[in-house]
Design a protein around this nucleic acid. Structure first.
Ligand SMILES: [Mn+2]
Ligand SMILES: [Mn+2]
Ligand SMILES: [Mn+2]
Ligand SMILES: [Mn+2]
Lengths: 227, 227
DNA sequence: TAATAAAATTAGGTTAACCTAACTATTTAA
DNA sequence: TTAAATAGTTAGGTTAACCTAATTTTATTA
């Protein structure tokens, strides 16, 4: 039996591992992520190890086994399908969907997920541009880089965001920057790396480097000099 | 904090009280309903009493307080709205919706419920003909009686079912009897109270008294002699 | 009504999921 | 390279939800 708590632990390990592939996933990381204390995590990790979903030692940290990763990816799949459904069918904003999807991802009905995935047209990406794993846990490819890596004059398209907080998403919405919008990098301030951007609807948007790091884009011109 | 377990206990008390208004709701009734053992129920009842959601003593059994009833009716509301949504929007059959709604009813988002209720057109009844309480917990009126109380020659319309089991609902589906279908009672067997019915699509349906007790109907002719 | 059956209750125990406090090991930084 | 800080671990405790096995009431029924 996988409880929703167990699902959340496995998803946390998956997400932390993916967030920073160079770092190991420590009990403290998981504890902070799930807002519990380290001993609670240790205890749960021991159970997950016994069940064969993760391996753990101090040096490698927590790692998902194949089984564990399958479960985690399935939760991620459900989460992203629900987000897309809420966004497309039920007209929630991209800053609202995450919280509700956190609950809905634990509903146990393959048929329901299949239905809503069908209704939204079997997309590859969710409203934040995150890839939706298929039933086998395979992620669609997409090559994206932070907007902050752009050079002056670059024309690019927004393919996602790496931060999902409501305040950040609402900030983008205010700037009228959304998924698949085209951006032109007009200027880059050498002192603080802030950018001046323009879009179809808005010109001279000033954006901090901090914000630009969270926006994932792809160059439009095939031979663009961006890194 | 109301956990889904607490919500289930309150809903159980509500449903048992409504199923048979003459009987008190005993710990054993609740235990059987929720598939737990009586001591577990006693324990939880003590907590619910302390929280002010129910009263309990051996003679009156468990009774919802005003607060407890409000919570229970809200869960019932969410359940029935989800059932209707699954049925109308996501094309689940009326025998499938209950089980999934049992999970979805605990999703905590008023905005989500409001949205889906809007999408389905703010109906008063769910796919089983059960009334959907409004936000204030008020139930829409409808007067219905078991088909088994019909007299020979009665023309009536199906407004609901009092049993929700998959096997029963699939049986009705096989007979092509659904909500709002018109029935004519052609014959009543005096020995076992079984009925001979006809519908628009099917003639000479033979139905046991047991099944007929679970079908809720309303006479079509205003001066019908049915009890 | 006395015996029997059923329901309610009490006692005591388990497991999952959390916690704090204390201790140990590992970093980091002076 | 030692002191201080941080991270990992162990020990021990709590609460919610379950359980079984008595025990005590409260029906039933012969
Ligand atoms: Mn999300
Ligand atoms: Mn997302
Ligand atoms: Mn139902
Ligand atoms: Mn129903």
């Amino acid at each position: 039996m996988k409880t929703y708590r167990e699902e959340n632990y496995l998803k946390a390990v998956y997400q932390l591992a993916n967030h920073d592939k160079s770092k190991t996933v420590s009990p403290t990381d998981i504890a902070n992520w799930l807002e519990v204390k380290p001993p609670t995590v240790l205890e749960k990790l021991a159970i997950l190890v016994k069940k064969g979903y993760v391996t753990y030692n101090k040096f490698d940290g927590a790692r998902l086994t194949t089984t564990g990763k399958d479960i985690a990816l399935n939760i991620v799949r459900r989460h992203r399908i629900w987000e897309t459904y809420l966004y497309k069918e039920l007209k929630f904003s991209w800053s609202e969907v995450h919280e509700i999807a956190e609950q809905l991802e634990h509903i146990n009905s393959d048929k329901l997920i299949d239905r809503i995935y069908d209704v939204i047209g079997n997309p590859d990406f969710d409203p934040h541009g995150d890839p939706i794993p298929n039933k086998q846990g395979k992620l669609p490819k997409s090559d994206r880089r932070p907007l902050s890596q752009s050079i002056k004059g670059c024309k690019c398209v927004v393919l996602g965001v790496s931060e999902h907080s409501e305040v950040f998403l609402n900030y983008l919405t205010e700037l009228k920057i959304g998924l698949n919008d085209k951006l032109i990098v007009e200027q880059i301030n050498a002192y603080d790396d802030s950018l001046k951007l323009s879009t179809k609807t808005k010109e001279h948007i000033l954006m901090s480097a901090k914000a630009a790091q969270q926006i994932l884009v792809q160059c439009i011109k095939p031979n663009c000099a961006c890194k």
